[in-house]
């Protein structure tokens, strides 16, 4: 068993190779060997899964020691990881690909992938066909992230998140995972600490910039610990605005911060249920006080924001509309270098 597990050490390398240009040198025999090897590990995974907890935990430890962070779960997924990596890798030469397709797709291929691939294509088509409205894609990513975090050893979740490529996909998945029912323990143990880590201001700022105002408001309502840092960012953004008396509006030297954006974010926070709504007004009043507690508009951005909050909503923007506005804003912002 130990000898077999020691071979598993090479799995991450094999999967990485299958995604790289290195497959240029693969011939049909290499493909068969690699898939056969991965299937052997899936077999081992099933064997260990059905074994007693003692054996399973020992194997789990041994795998992690050897750098397989996903443990047994990753062992079980290795054939499909390898298959998809090879299918999508354009560098694989024709003879090797010919073999791959025969093994994976044809009825005599003898693999479980023979069922998995059509099923996956069918599911993809189904998801495309059905007109769902409420962000199922975000939730799917969040659930995968959570299930992967659950596979991690206790205490190594933060390190795992650090290994993932930082980008919109990760931030969106983290945000949705923070709102996912049943993800509370991962939120407290890993996601919030990762987001609010000392010295991680740039990450938090990128996170908050990317996400729509409504999403951040719900996040603050669900996780009050987020409100302070988020409001800190908004305060900093507000500090960068200056009033243009000729135009009668707040403008910024930083193109990524706008009055309407700030106003929208504050508004949506103040529309969340108590105690969040009062807390946000309290925060703004404090900043207004620091600015000299003026009541006349145009002197402090916080005075103007408070006035805006007290104003009866003449043209109250619908939530969907505001989400759309901020979303396009964020995406434009990200795509610019």
């Amino acid at each position: 068993m130990e000898a077999l597990l020691s071979q598993a050490e090479q799995l991450p390398g094999l999967v990485a190779a299958s995604r790289s240009p290195a497959v240029r040198s693969w011939d049909p025999a290499t493909v068969s060997r690699a898939l056969g090897w991965a299937r052997a590990f899936r077999h081992l995974h099933r064997h260990l899964r059905d074994a007693g907890p003692g054996l399973r935990e020992a194997a789990e430890r041994s795998l992690r020691r050897r750098g397989l962070h996903g443990g047994l779960g990753q062992l079980g997924r290795s054939p499909s990881l390898l298959s998809f990596a090879l299918l999508e890798n354009r560098a694989l030469p024709s003879p090797a690909r010919g073999r791959l397709l025969r093994i994976l797709l044809l009825p005599s291929g003898g693999g479980e992938e023979e069922l998995l691939l059509p099923l996956s294509a069918r599911r993809k088509a189904a998801a495309q066909l059905l007109p769902a409205c409420e962000g199922p894609a975000d939730r799917a990513q969040a659930q995968l992230l959570l299930s992967r975090l659950r596979e991690e050893e206790e205490g190594s979740g933060l390190a795992f998140l650090d290994r993932l490529p930082c980008g919109p996909a990760l931030y969106k998945a983290v945000a949705s995972a923070l709102l996912e029912p049943g993800g509370e323990s991962e939120a407290q143990a890993v996601l919030l600490p990762w987001l609010l880590r000392r010295g991680g201001g740039a990450r938090l700022e990128a996170f908050c910039r990317l996400l729509p105002a409504a999403r951040l408001a719900s996040l603050c309502a669900r996780h009050p610990g987020l409100l302070g840092p988020y409001f800190g960012l908004l305060a900093a953004w507000g500090g960068r605005l200056a009033h243009d008396p000729l135009l009668g509006e707040w403008r910024s030297t930083h193109p990524e911060v706008t009055w309407s954006e700030l106003r929208e974010r504050i508004r949506l926070l103040s529309q969340e249920p108590e105690p969040l709504a009062s807390a946000i007004r309290e925060h703004i009043r404090k900043l207004k006080g620091q600015d000299g507690d003026f009541e006349a508009p145009g002197l402090s951005v916080w005075t103007d924001l408070l006035i805006d909050l007290e104003r009866p909503d003449v043209e109250k923007p619908g939530r969907d509309h505001s989400q759309f506005v901020t979303e396009t804003w964020s995406e434009r912002d990200l795509s610019s270098p």
Binding site: G73, S120, R123, L130, C133, P136, A140, L145, A173
Partner: peptide, 28 residues
Amino acid sequence: DLNSFISTLGFTSADYNSKLLENVVLSL
């Protein structure tokens, strides 16, 4: 971006498509 995120998580597009459909169905 999403593709590389899912694969660095250690999942495949099959895992993603399955979760996606589950959520689409649930939402409907």
